Simulated scan of single mutants.
Amino acid sequence: MRIDLSGKTALVTASTAGIGLAIAQGLAESGALVVLNGRSQASVDAARQTLLQAVPGASLQGVVADLGDAAGAAQLIKAAPTVDILVNNVGIYGPKPFFDVTDEDWEAYFQTNVMSGVRLSRHYLRGMLAADWGRVVFISSESALNIPADMIHYGFSKTAQLAIARGLAKFAAGTGVTVNSVLPGPTLSDGFRSMLAETAEENGQSIEEAGAEFVQAERPSSILRRPATVDEVANMVVYVCSLQASATTGAALRVDGGVVDSIV
């Protein structure tokens, strides 16, 4: 299968590192013009250079915008008013005991993880429907289904994404626009690597070995028995954005290594 997205413009939010950067690279390799997004000019510039080294000649645009509020979303929309593909990847996470999660914490997770995707989808979906072609993808998480006791606030936000994506898919019924969610499990993103670094050094392990131990201890239902790579997650997203994925919509597609113990 050869995925060709030439002539398409793809926006990937929070695409300066980790899963977002891997998705941006996969879309650029498929020929799309990719709009990179980050919260600082330095991070956007660094991501642009990384992608140009990996994909010489890639068509890239960089937009600095913090999507934690409506003003940031408006700033991004002004800089990139029209896209064919929207990947709602931006998100914050972190463990915190339920009794310590403040109203402000709940609001921050809602604004960044949920409302960012709502705001961007509300704008870009109009153009996609008018063109009768488009792709919207929400990067959710296996935590949307397996709500972590130490990250209830995060799990809630990821479950909300599933509801929005499914509803938007129905809203776009009968058109050439698809809306889906992708649910990664433990993934060797930059943040996860940093979390494992101290343990790996103490035990004389590689990051990959420490990651495998973490998955087997903390996600014992995992069939893969190791974290996914960012590229493995990106591969699913690029496919969902492709012309070939035209019959896949309203789906919650897991790239969780089998962590969610379900046959569907």
Rank of each mutant, 00 (worst) to 15 (best):
R39T: 12
V44A: 07
E29M: 06
P56W: 02
V55Y: 09
A22M: 11
E29W: 01
G57I: 03
A14T: 01
L27Q: 08
Q25E: 15
P56V: 05
Q49C: 04
V63N: 07
G62T: 08
G38N: 00
L60R: 10
I23T: 03
A32W: 14
V63M: 10
S30T: 03
G20A: 08
Q61V: 15
A32D: 11
A47T: 02
E29R: 14
A24P: 14
Q53R: 11
R48A: 13
Q61P: 03
V35T: 06
Q49S: 14
G57T: 14
D4M: 03
L5P: 10
N37I: 00
V12Y: 08
A46K: 13
G31Y: 12
G26C: 09
D45I: 01
V55R: 08
V12I: 15
A17W: 01
A17V: 01
D4Y: 12
S40M: 00
A28L: 11
G62D: 08
V44F: 09
G31S: 12
A28I: 08
S59M: 13
G57P: 07
G31P: 08
L21T: 01
T9D: 05
D45G: 02
G57M: 04
S43M: 05
L36F: 03
D4E: 15
N37S: 00
L5S: 11
S43E: 14
Q41M: 03
E29V: 04
L27R: 08
G57R: 12
L27H: 10
A24L: 11
G38P: 00
V35H: 06
S6Y: 05
G31F: 09
V44N: 11
S15T: 05
A46P: 00
R48S: 15
A22T: 02
A14D: 13
I19F: 02
Q61G: 10
L51S: 11
L5R: 13
V44K: 09
G18P: 13
G57S: 14
I19K: 00
S59F: 05
Q49L: 12
Q41A: 15
G57Q: 04
I23P: 06
V35N: 04
L11P: 06
G7H: 11
P56T: 12
L5D: 09
N37T: 00
Q53H: 09
L52Q: 15
L60T: 13
L11N: 02
R39V: 04
L52W: 14
S30E: 02
L51T: 02
T9G: 04
G20K: 04
G31T: 02
L60C: 08
A17C: 01
R48V: 05
D4S: 12
V35I: 15
Q41N: 04
L27K: 06
L51D: 04
L5A: 13
L33D: 01
T9F: 05
L33F: 12
A58H: 12
Q49K: 11
